[in-house]
Computed example of a mutant assay.
Amino acid sequence: MRVELSDEARQYIGTFDELTDVGPLDCLLEDDGDRVVFLLPAGEMGDAIGPDGRVVRRVEDRLGADVVLVENADTPEAFVANALAPAAVRGVTVSEQNDTVAYVEVPERDRGVAIGADGRTIETARRLASRHFDIDDVQLA
Protein backbone atom coordinates (compact mmCIF):
# COMPACT_ATOMS: atom_id res chain seq x y z
CA MET A 1 0.00 0.00 0.00
CA ARG A 2 1.29 3.45 -0.89
CA VAL A 3 1.35 6.05 1.89
CA GLU A 4 1.28 9.73 1.06
CA LEU A 5 3.48 11.99 3.17
CA SER A 6 3.35 15.72 3.67
CA ASP A 7 6.48 17.78 3.03
CA GLU A 8 6.85 18.28 6.78
CA ALA A 9 6.63 14.50 7.41
CA ARG A 10 9.30 13.93 4.74
CA GLN A 11 11.56 16.46 6.46
CA TYR A 12 11.05 14.70 9.81
CA ILE A 13 11.88 11.35 8.20
CA GLY A 14 15.05 12.83 6.73
CA THR A 15 16.12 14.23 10.09
CA PHE A 16 15.37 10.92 11.82
CA ASP A 17 17.35 8.98 9.21
CA GLU A 18 20.27 11.40 9.47
CA LEU A 19 20.46 11.11 13.27
CA THR A 20 19.80 7.36 13.63
CA ASP A 21 20.81 5.71 10.33
CA VAL A 22 17.34 4.13 10.35
CA GLY A 23 14.97 5.05 7.50
CA PRO A 24 11.37 5.28 8.76
CA LEU A 25 8.61 3.87 6.56
CA ASP A 26 6.00 6.38 7.70
CA CYS A 27 5.62 9.46 9.87
CA LEU A 28 2.52 10.82 11.61
CA LEU A 29 2.52 14.35 12.98
CA GLU A 30 0.21 14.66 15.97
CA ASP A 31 -0.86 17.28 18.48
CA ASP A 32 0.20 20.25 16.36
CA GLY A 33 3.73 18.89 16.01
CA ASP A 34 4.22 18.15 19.73
CA ARG A 35 4.26 14.40 19.02
CA VAL A 36 5.78 12.59 16.06
CA VAL A 37 5.22 8.89 15.35
CA PHE A 38 7.71 7.00 13.19
CA LEU A 39 7.01 3.57 11.70
CA LEU A 40 10.32 1.70 11.60
CA PRO A 41 11.39 -1.33 9.58
CA ALA A 42 11.18 -4.57 11.56
CA GLY A 43 14.33 -5.28 13.52
CA GLU A 44 15.64 -1.71 13.62
CA MET A 45 14.01 -0.49 16.83
CA GLY A 46 17.17 -0.98 18.92
CA ASP A 47 19.30 1.08 16.55
CA ALA A 48 16.72 3.88 16.56
CA ILE A 49 16.52 3.97 20.36
CA GLY A 50 20.25 3.63 20.97
CA PRO A 51 22.04 2.84 24.23
CA ASP A 52 20.00 4.09 27.20
CA GLY A 53 17.68 5.90 24.73
CA ARG A 54 20.34 8.44 23.79
CA VAL A 55 19.70 8.30 20.04
CA VAL A 56 15.95 8.82 20.22
CA ARG A 57 16.41 11.60 22.79
CA ARG A 58 18.73 13.36 20.33
CA VAL A 59 15.94 13.13 17.73
CA GLU A 60 13.43 14.56 20.21
CA ASP A 61 15.77 17.44 20.99
CA ARG A 62 16.30 18.23 17.30
CA LEU A 63 12.60 18.01 16.42
CA GLY A 64 11.38 19.70 19.59
CA ALA A 65 8.71 17.02 19.95
CA ASP A 66 8.00 13.77 21.74
CA VAL A 67 8.92 10.84 19.49
CA VAL A 68 6.97 7.57 19.43
CA LEU A 69 8.42 4.55 17.63
CA VAL A 70 6.35 1.71 16.17
CA GLU A 71 7.89 -1.38 14.61
CA ASN A 72 6.49 -2.61 11.29
CA ALA A 73 5.15 -6.17 10.91
CA ASP A 74 4.15 -8.47 8.06
CA THR A 75 0.65 -9.26 9.32
CA PRO A 76 -2.10 -6.86 10.36
CA GLU A 77 -2.43 -8.66 13.70
CA ALA A 78 1.24 -8.22 14.61
CA PHE A 79 1.18 -4.66 13.27
CA VAL A 80 -1.71 -3.64 15.53
CA ALA A 81 -0.04 -5.32 18.52
CA ASN A 82 3.16 -3.38 17.83
CA ALA A 83 1.24 -0.11 17.48
CA LEU A 84 -0.28 -0.60 20.95
CA ALA A 85 3.06 -1.36 22.67
CA PRO A 86 3.99 -1.33 25.48
CA ALA A 87 0.55 -2.74 26.32
CA ALA A 88 0.57 -6.52 26.72
CA VAL A 89 -1.55 -7.68 23.79
CA ARG A 90 -2.82 -11.24 24.20
CA GLY A 91 -4.25 -11.49 20.72
CA VAL A 92 -5.62 -9.62 17.72
CA THR A 93 -8.45 -10.82 15.52
CA VAL A 94 -9.21 -9.05 12.26
CA SER A 95 -12.85 -9.29 11.21
CA GLU A 96 -13.96 -8.40 7.70
CA GLN A 97 -17.72 -7.91 7.78
CA ASN A 98 -19.03 -4.57 6.51
CA ASP A 99 -15.87 -2.90 7.82
CA THR A 100 -12.47 -4.34 8.60
CA VAL A 101 -12.01 -4.18 12.38
CA ALA A 102 -9.09 -5.36 14.50
CA TYR A 103 -10.33 -6.62 17.87
CA VAL A 104 -7.53 -6.55 20.42
CA GLU A 105 -7.46 -8.63 23.59
CA VAL A 106 -5.59 -6.77 26.32
CA PRO A 107 -5.43 -7.65 30.04
CA GLU A 108 -7.55 -5.31 32.17
CA ARG A 109 -4.43 -3.90 33.86
CA ASP A 110 -3.07 -2.80 30.44
CA ARG A 111 -6.25 -1.24 29.01
CA GLY A 112 -5.12 2.24 30.05
CA VAL A 113 -1.73 1.71 28.41
CA ALA A 114 -3.39 0.51 25.18
CA ILE A 115 -5.72 3.51 25.14
CA GLY A 116 -3.08 6.05 26.19
CA ALA A 117 -3.49 9.55 27.54
CA ASP A 118 -6.53 11.15 25.93
CA GLY A 119 -6.84 8.06 23.68
CA ARG A 120 -3.65 8.91 21.78
CA THR A 121 -2.16 5.42 21.65
CA ILE A 122 -5.23 3.67 20.26
CA GLU A 123 -5.90 6.54 17.86
CA THR A 124 -2.34 6.27 16.54
CA ALA A 125 -2.85 2.51 16.11
CA ARG A 126 -6.06 3.20 14.18
CA ARG A 127 -4.38 5.70 11.87
CA LEU A 128 -1.38 3.48 11.16
CA ALA A 129 -3.51 0.33 10.68
CA SER A 130 -5.71 2.23 8.24
CA ARG A 131 -2.73 3.55 6.27
CA HIS A 132 -0.88 0.24 6.05
CA PHE A 133 -3.50 -2.53 6.18
CA ASP A 134 -6.84 -0.88 5.24
CA ILE A 135 -8.21 -1.56 8.72
CA ASP A 136 -11.19 0.67 9.43
CA ASP A 137 -11.09 0.49 13.22
CA VAL A 138 -9.15 -0.92 16.17
CA GLN A 139 -11.22 -1.87 19.22
CA LEU A 140 -10.27 -3.33 22.57
CA ALA A 141 -12.16 -6.54 23.23
Rank of each mutant, 00 (worst) to 15 (best):
R2G: 10
R2I: 13
V3Y: 01
D7W: 00
A9E: 15
R10Q: 14
Q11F: 05
G14W: 00
T15K: 09
D17G: 00
L19D: 10
L19N: 13
T20M: 03
D21H: 10
V22D: 08
V22A: 09
P24Y: 06
D26H: 14
C27L: 01
L28F: 05
L28W: 02
L28S: 05
D31C: 01
D32W: 09
G33D: 07
R35C: 03
R35H: 13
V37H: 04
V37Y: 03
V37R: 02
F38E: 07
F38H: 12
L39K: 07
L40D: 07
L40C: 09
A42P: 12
G43L: 08
G43S: 08
G46Q: 07
A48Y: 03
G53H: 11
R54Q: 13
V55K: 15
V56A: 09
V56I: 15
R57N: 11
V59S: 09
G64K: 12
A65C: 06
V67E: 02
L69H: 02
V70Y: 01
E71N: 02
A73I: 11
D74S: 15
T75D: 10
T75Q: 06
P76R: 08
E77L: 08
A78V: 01
F79H: 06
A83C: 15
A83Q: 04
A85P: 03
P86S: 10
V89E: 03
V89M: 04
R90K: 14
G91N: 14
G91E: 11
G91W: 02
V92L: 04
T93A: 11
T93P: 00
T93I: 04
E96Q: 13
E96K: 12
Q97H: 10
Q97W: 00
D99V: 10
T100K: 15
V101P: 06
A102L: 09
V104C: 02
V104W: 01
E105N: 13
V106D: 05
R109G: 00
D110S: 04
R111Y: 11
R111W: 14
G112A: 04
A114Q: 10
R120D: 08
R120H: 06
T121P: 02
I122N: 01
I122K: 00
E123M: 05
T124M: 11
T124W: 03
T124V: 14
T124Q: 06
A125T: 08
R131N: 14
H132K: 02
H132R: 13
D136W: 00
D136Q: 08
D137N: 14
Q139N: 09
L140N: 07
